[in-house]
Nucleic acid binder design. Structure first.
Lengths: 196, 196
DNA sequence: AATTGCATGTAAGGAGTTACATGATTAA
DNA sequence: TTAATCATGTAACTCCTTACATGCAATT
């Protein structure tokens, strides 16, 4: 009789509710909407989405109607008044703290076991960050232009800027760390120095 | 008969192996070691630790001896040759990509529903980041002094610098975003402007 | 004719946390 | 005497992804 208390509030229902603010959608369309708008910092799989929609309906936070669209049967979901209220109250509450877990740092911490490999990991992390940075900068310009004058534009841009700041900091740190590792001789090099 | 393929390699065993490089330890001591050295970017709970130790022993990567220490019975674990090899090969492989999930950004994205609350969330995220930044700077100085000349020092410092860079970027972004939101009138303010 | 896209779902299982149970020792 | 620390562990969950199954429509 242990561990019954829910550890943390589910977030999936609220992403769904938030996406439905843009208008009714099928589960499939909802997933695409998530990917295209908040995809940079949030993802949902069908395995989460479909059961969550049923649960939301059971609580009266969304409603569905079956539509025949192009011959296909599609369940179209829309948010209810109660759903809007639930979403607003969730946004109001402070976000739950999230502790980071970083596998690259873990490998870096044990780098003495495979120094060359870790240097490669750092280089490819830096390259990935730079590529992502370019992508985000293009996205930012595109969004700024296409959504010009729209009310939600500053919010869009702020979330993209978060990504830009993060990737810039990451790329810089990778370069710094590579330089620091080059200055600090590894245990192998130290052994060579002792022999010389 | 679905979903049998393991999605991603477990990391817990490798953190354990890495921590045992510093010398034999009990499960309890191991957890403290993790908290004190890689705690800034990795955590493990007993619920993970104890079963993982048994699994590692079953694979011959660690060994245990029972010790009576201060009258208490303690299982002391140490890494084997095979364990070292397994750890080195894991460090060698590229880290698995990790997609971020960020609840603060999600709430920011829906900020029109509760603009004042989201401003508070941003302010407290910035304050947390600044506090953490100060903590990390003190930690950095402390580590640099205490571990002076030790071989692993550059690695220690690099992981701390990662945290510093991240928290600095976060704090700056929070301030920028707060300023941007202040410039961009919310839907409530826009309604007031229309009435005026 | 084959591939991609639209569409709804489920089964299996890994990863991870919380909350317990238990009990000895040590310091305030 | 009470609280904190040392010490080992398990049960019950939640969260989440992957890999399937199924089938129609539109495109190449």
């Amino acid at each position: 009789m242990y561990g019954r208390k829910p550890t943390r509030e589910k977030r999936t229902p609220y992403v769904i509710l938030g996406m439905l603010l843009q208008g009714p959608a099928s589960g499939y369309a909802l997933r695409q909407r998530i990917e295209q708008s908040v995809g940079n910092f949030w993802q949902e799989s069908y395995g989460q989405l479909y059961p969550a929609l049923e649960a939301l309906a059971a609580n009266g936070l969304v409603e569905s109607t079956d539509q025949a669209k192009d011959g296909r049967d599609t369940r179209v979901w829309r948010i209810t008044k109660a759903g809007r209220a639930a979403l607003a109250s969730w946004v109001d509450r402070p976000p739950s703290p999230q502790r980071e877990r970083n596998e690259l740092l873990l490998k870096l911490f044990f780098a003495d076991l495979a120094p060359a490999a870790v240097r490669r990991h750092l280089e490819s992390a830096r390259d990935d960050a730079r590529r992502d940075l370019e992508r985000l900068k293009l996205l930012r310009a595109d969004v700024a232009q296409r959504a010009h004058g729209q009310e939600a534009l500053p919010l869009w841009l702020a979330t993209i800027d978060y990504g830009i700041a993060g990737q810039e900091a990451l790329a810089r740190w990778c370069d710094q760390t590579l330089a620091a590792l080059a200055r600090a001789p590894s245990s192998k090099k130290r052994a060579q120095l002792r022999r010389a």
